[in-house]
Design a protein around this nucleic acid. Structure first.
Length: 352
DNA sequence: TCGCATGATTACGA
DNA sequence: TCGTAATCATGCGA
């Protein structure tokens, strides 16, 4: 025979004595002094144990009687206390988690991208910077920029609508569980603290769903960014004039095609691109020229002639300014170009 | 659609 | 930090 059964057996004979005294304070005091509380507890426990063997109507009636029993609140309070001290105290240690760093990261990213928090035209600066770096025309970049913002706004809208749905579902479910527990607390020992803990558990479960939502939103933003803002994806060929300017510099400095920082800035300004794009261009050009001089020779000749023509123009203008009456300056210039072309052709033959 | 051209990125070395 | 070499990813003309 275990302890509980022994206790129940001992108490069985005392059952049913207290029911007549409900609501009589004097009687209660008398009974307390005579060990009556033990009888009351035994009575309640006996009734609880017997409730499962009864029909539904009888059980309902018994339940009602139990709820009305004057010792019921005290007994439930003791049972709740015992429960708190045993099971719940163990859980309590695990429940007070620190804030999840993963959630913090996701929150920070969503805030930075303008998805969560106040609307601020998220990513506009990044979009503009990427568009500029990609060397796109202002019209192109503004179209892409507005497209990017529209898509981001769409993600933001979906995120907030889903978040609202989750919060609503969480609140509804929490209320439902709380009502259920309050209802159950009439027949089994459930303390308010336990209800609070249950609510906390529900919130944690829902926050893990929220984390999934945040994660998938972040992924969507990353995909959007890579699609719209990745400079490599948005590669645009430089315009003809820019390429000409760069090639002119390259071929006129073929012996040392390494522009200084100032020269790079000047070229960047002339071409409407960034200094790093100028550096990239020269890096690529040097490599590709070196790998295949023959292929670039024609281009080299073209730019060499062009440079010579420009130089001759400058020279002719200068000499005209010095002696405006010189009649043969045009002829001299043509001779100069012919000679230069001849030299370039000879050089090409030697190199190839 | 394919192949070449070209701007950007990355790893590595001086 | 800059340049080189290799590579990627996209643009563009045939």
């Amino acid at each position: 025979m275990d302890d509980q059964t022994r206790m129940m057996t001992g108490l069985t004979g005392l059952g049913g004595l207290a029911q007549a005294d409900v609501g009589d304070p004097d009687s209660v005091r008398k009974q307390q002094s005579l060990g009556q509380p033990q009888q009351d507890i035994g009575d309640i426990l006996q009734q609880i144990m017997a409730i499962t063997d009864e029909s539904l109507d009888e059980a309902q009636a018994r339940k009602h009687a139990l709820n009305c029993h004057r010792m019921k609140p005290a007994l439930f309070s003791v049972l709740c206390e015992i429960k708190e001290k045993t099971v719940l105290s163990i859980r309590g240690v695990q429940e007070e988690d620190p804030p999840d760093p993963q959630i913090m990261r996701l929150d920070n990213m969503l805030l930075a991208e303008g998805v969560s928090g106040p609307e601020k035209g998220g990513g506009s600066a990044a979009a503009a910077a990427a568009a500029a770096a990609a060397g796109g025309s202002p019209t192109d970049s503004s179209i892409e920029h507005s497209d990017y913002r529209a898509k981001l706004a769409q993600i933001r809208q979906i995120y907030h609508s889903e978040l609202e749905k989750y919060e609503q579902a969480c609140s509804e479910f929490t209320n439902h569980v709380m009502n259920l527990l309050r209802e159950q607390s009439r027949t089994r020992p459930i303390s308010p603290k336990e209800i609070e803990r249950m609510v906390a558990i529900i919130h944690r479960k829902f926050s893990s769903i929220q984390m999934q939502l945040k994660q998938s939103t972040c992924e969507a933003v990353m995909i959007l960014r890579s699609r719209f803002l990745d400079a490599r994806r948005k590669r645009r060929n430089f315009n003809k004039q820019a390429t000409e300017v760069l090639n002119e510099y390259f071929y006129s400095h073929l012996s040392n095609p390494y522009p200084s920082e100032e020269a790079k800035e000047e070229l960047a300004k002339k071409c409407g691109i960034t200094v790093s794009q100028v550096s990239n261009w020269f890096g690529n050009k040097r490599i590709r020229y070196k790998k295949n001089i023959g292929k670039f020779q024609e281009e080299a000749n073209l730019y060499a002639v062009k440079t010579a023509v420009d130089a001759a123009n400058v020279s002719a203008q200068a000499s005209q300014a010095n002696s405006p009456a010189t009649p043969n300056s045009g002829t001299a210039y043509l001779c100069y170009v012919e000679c230069f072309t001849f030299i370039v052709n000879v050089r090409t033959e030697i190199l190839t």
